[in-house]
Amino acid sequence: MQAFEKYRSLRLLDSLQFLRGIGVTLEVTLLSIAIGTFIGIILGIIRCSKNKAVSSLPLIYIEPLRNSPLVTQLFLVYYGIPMITNWMPSAFTCAVLTLSLNTGAFFAVLVNNSIKAIPQGQWEAGYALGHGKTSVFIHFIVPQAFRLLIPQAVTLYIGQLQCSSYVALISLIDLTKTGETISLRTMMPFVCWGIVFALYFIISFPLSKLAQYLEKKNEFAY
């Protein structure tokens, strides 16, 4: 009974802490997907260039980030950068920086794939009407590619939300780290991790349903 009382008295404070954890998680995620989307759009369009040398240039950036663990990237930035430069970024800066670069790499691939998924006939139909390359791209290709891209982008964002939990490992107090802290203090890991589980699920489940819905809705039958 005593143990129970202790837990109850902690509950209000804990829920505030969980809220703060969610705040940090969302802050890191939203910032980095915004920056990452920007990077990804630019690199994705460069990837579509007809010139092989130009189009493969972004691969130097994209491939290492896609093919190595985010944890390693985080550690490289968090522990590595202060070693080789005079800059001492905070854990938060490191988290946003790494996640942004990481999102950018994945987003570039999505952008590139969406543009390439538009059949060649659409380009030709535009050319045949007298449009130039840029005009076809802006008026016909981008709107179609955009609809293909949206559901995939939402799915990527959900993935990045979950990946953001890795920032707990560089001791940024996000939702996951909060869960760990509280579970160690209350010695009720099952309940605490259950709560963290549920919170992540509540945020990302509706989004993933939205992605599925958009995917069905935006499908084109050419």
Binding site: P189, W193, F197, Y200, F201, S208
Partner: peptide, 23 residues
């Protein structure tokens, strides 16, 4: 599928690591 896809791997890992002994 939905639960696993919508929660971070790290949380799942901690859940098993700290939670299983409690069970």
């Amino acid at each position: 599928v939905e639960v696993l896809r919508n929660t971070p791997f790290l949380v799942q890992l901690f859940f098993f690591y700290y939670g299983l002994p409690e069970l």
